[in-house]
């Protein structure tokens, strides 16, 4: 059911470009991704944007909506456009390919730099590791494990803007979950990778990532954990 119209400004172009204005029919339970999809399908097929699952799992549809990074598939228009106006831009701190599509290469390369890959210590011939759900380290890992890699925290982080080498909240959060995974054997190298002014020590604990994370994770707490772990390693001479 259509209930009026939305006034939508959408970024068109790459680094240089302009906002284009569209009128989009307003509907019940309409998401921001629905709005973008409407423009692309019914008004201007040349609009570029990215999405896949539409249900908050794949993490590919993040955009800047009315000045704030959000996952658009789970952001209802009612939540962000009470006055019927939407301003949709690509994510900050990432190179714009075209319109609303950004190049995520830097973002995911930094996961690799933070040693975000699991380093197994057992083989398929070993028994399964028995880990109690209530185990302290497991609970710390579980607190950050639901990251979908949408880049919303990265785009919301001021330190990423100031320091382009900074690994960012998502990569550091990933490193922290692995450091707390007792099955992983790469923690020593990982701590060396996440220390320093491109790593956890650059974080100012402003918690922009916490504020914006659509999965309600707390990357700032993960980064604080990394700071403690790195400090102990440095004091013990194992960094």
């Amino acid at each position: 059911m259509s209930t009026g119209s939305l006034s939508v400004s959408v970024w068109r172009g790459s680094k240089k470009g302009r906002f284009a204005d569209y009128d989009v029919p307003r509907r019940d339970r309409q998401t921001v991704l629905d709005v973008v999809t409407h423009i692309q399908r019914y008004i201007d097929p040349s609009l570029s944007y990215r999405f896949a699952c539409r249900v908050g799992v794949c993490g590919s549809c993040a955009m800047t909506v009315n000045g704030r990074a959000r996952w658009t598939c789970r952001t209802h228009v009612n939540q962000v456009a009470a006055d019927g106006r939407l301003r949709i831009e690509p994510l900050r701190s990432l190179r714009v390919i075209k319109d609303l599509s950004v190049d995520m290469t830097d973002f995911f390369d930094k996961w690799a730099k933070a040693k975000g890959a699991f380093e197994p210590t057992a083989t398929r011939t070993n028994d399964l590791a028995a880990i109690q759900p209530g185990d302290f380290k497991r609970r710390q890992a579980s607190a950050g494990i639901e990251c979908i890699g949408c880049g919303v925290c990265y785009a919301s982080c001021d330190v990423v803007q100031w320091n382009s080498d900074y690994l960012g909240p998502a990569a550091l959060n990933r490193a922290w979950t692995l450091i707390n995974d007792v099955r992983d054997g790469g923690s020593r190298e990982r701590l060396a990778a996440v220390a320093g002014d491109a790593g956890c020590h650059a974080c100012h604990s402003q918690q922009g990532c916490v504020e914006s994370c659509p999965k309600h994770l707390n990357p700032t707490a993960s980064i604080a954990g990394l700071k403690r772990a790195v400090a102990w390693a440095a004091l013990k001479g194992t960094l």
């Binding site: 060396a192 020590h201 790195v230 960094l239």
Partner: peptide
């Protein structure tokens, strides 16, 4: 792999600031 000297230096500065 151990930390690069500059990384170790940054970590020591961070520790010095916290202490």
């Amino acid at each position: 792999m151990s930390a690069r000297p500059d990384t170790l230096g940054e970590t020591r500065l961070w520790l010095a600031q916290r202490f």
